[in-house]
Design a binder for these strands. Sequence first.
DNA 1: TGACTACTGATAACTCAGTCTCACCTTCAT
DNA 2: ATGAAGGTGAGACTGAGTTATCAGTAGTCA
Lengths: 131, 131
Amino acid sequence: MSEPKTDKRNTQQQNLIRGLFRHTERPLSAQELLDAASSIQPGIGIATIYRGIKTLLERQEIVHIALPGTTPRYEKAGTHHHHHFLCTRCDKVYPVAGCTGHLDKLTPPGFVMESHKIVLEGRCASCATSN
Amino acid sequence: MSEPKTDKRNTQQQNLIRGLFRHTERPLSAQELLDAASSIQPGIGIATIYRGIKTLLERQEIVHIALPGTTPRYEKAGTHHHHHFLCTRCDKVYPVAGCTGHLDKLTPPGFVMESHKIVLEGRCASCATSN
DNA sequence: TGACTACTGATAACTCAGTCTCACCTTCAT
DNA sequence: ATGAAGGTGAGACTGAGTTATCAGTAGTCA
C-alpha cells in the first residue's frame, strides 16, 4: 500500500484513494470516493479527493467515465471494452461485460463514428429486492 | 401557429419555441433554442426559453434527453424508439433510427433493466468533411 | 377600448461540481 | 533529528446551467 512511482510524496491519503480504486469493481464518483475514504480516514477533504483523481488520471491508472444525467465516475484503467448499468434508485454505476456490436449499422450516412456508449438503466441487484 | 390548449396565454414567444421543435429534427439544448429563437425574434431572453421548455415538458409535447458529458437536450415527444449521435466537434445531437437489441443479455443477474441508452460519438456529416 | 393580469426581458440569485488559497502538517533527504 | 518543501483540510471562490424577482409589456375578455 505504498508506491512512490514519481517524485511525488507517498502520502497516506493518496495511497488510500489508490487503494479504493484497486479494491472496488465499480466506477466511483468523487463523492463516493469521499464517503468511502472518510469511513477509513475521517476528516479527509474533498479537495484531496479531487487532487488524487487528478494525479491518477495523469498517471493513467484510472479513466474518466461520462454518463447521462449524473456526475462523472472514474474507473481502473486497462479493463476490457465494456459498458455500464446505472441504478436509478441508488445512483451507483456497475460495469457490464461485453457489447452487442452491430452499431456501425446505426450510424447515419456521412457520419463518422469514433466511439459508442451503451448505458443500461434500472434497479441494481440490491435495489431490486428492497423497497 | 397558435394553440391555446390551456388557460395559458398564447404568446409570440411560446409559439416561436413550439415552432422550433416542430420544425427541427434533432434534439435541442436551451442554448441552441436561444440561438435559433434570437435569429427570428432578436431580444428574446434565456429565461423565456427555459419557461417555454418547462411548459412544453408539462404538456408532454417534448421530452428531456440526458447525454454523457453535455447539457440536456429536448426533443419532440411521441417519436419511435431511437438513439442519438453526439458530434464531438460541433456538439450537435442527431437522432439515430433503430436499435441493436439483445441488450437483455448484458444485464447482470439480479439486476432489473428498465431502459437503455445508446450514444454514438464522432463527427457528424458536416464536421466530417470540414476541418 | 379599457382594465386586468399573465408573460417577458434583464439580471440577480441560486445550485452544484470542481478549483484555488493558505496556514499548518507530513514526508523525506540529509 | 532536522529542515525544506510538497501535501492536506477548511472554506472561499469560480463557472456553467438554471431559476427567481420585478417593473414594464402584451394578450384576453368584457
